[in-house]
Amino acid sequence: MWLSTEASTIMGGLFVSVQTAGTPPKASKKKPRPAGTLYRGHEGMWSWVFHRITGVAIFFFLLVHVLDTALVRVSPEAYDAVIGTYQTPIMGIGEVGLVAAIVFHAFNGLRIILVDFWSKGTRYQKLMFWIVIALWVLTMLAFVPRHLTNVFSH
């Protein structure tokens, strides 16, 4: 996949610089990564990157969520034990990430629908991207304080 190759070239770059740090002659001439540079796309490309990352993340969350919910049919005690671990602050912070991903994916999904089906959608895609970001920030500002007070006061 594109993401994994880009990520691995970034990783590769990090790895090489770590490797050469101990050997002065090599470290002195710092060369760019042998792989190509990261393509410098604009709003459209990054919105797609985030859309795919959040989409895959939500998918894996739902997969786990279906499994843990299905546990209730196997053993209610085991279900209670697993669900109990979700009450911890770490999970509470994880939930912030999950909501952040879903909210971005949902708003940007509506943007993609407009790009596809509204005749002027392609012309306003950048503006719509920033509207998505604004709506995302507003939603998170409304959600995060309330949620975290809940998480840390119980």
């Binding site: 393509y39 604009h42 459209g44 490309m45 993609i112 392609t122 012309r123």
Partner: peptide, 22 residues
């Protein structure tokens, strides 16, 4: 096509490529 708009921004002739695909 995933509408990343990289094509429209790259085209040296200023063609609205993503619009054409749509």
């Amino acid at each position: 096509c995933r509408t990343t708009f990289n094509c429209s921004e790259a085209c040296p002739r200023g063609i609205q490529v993503t619009q054409a695909i749509a």
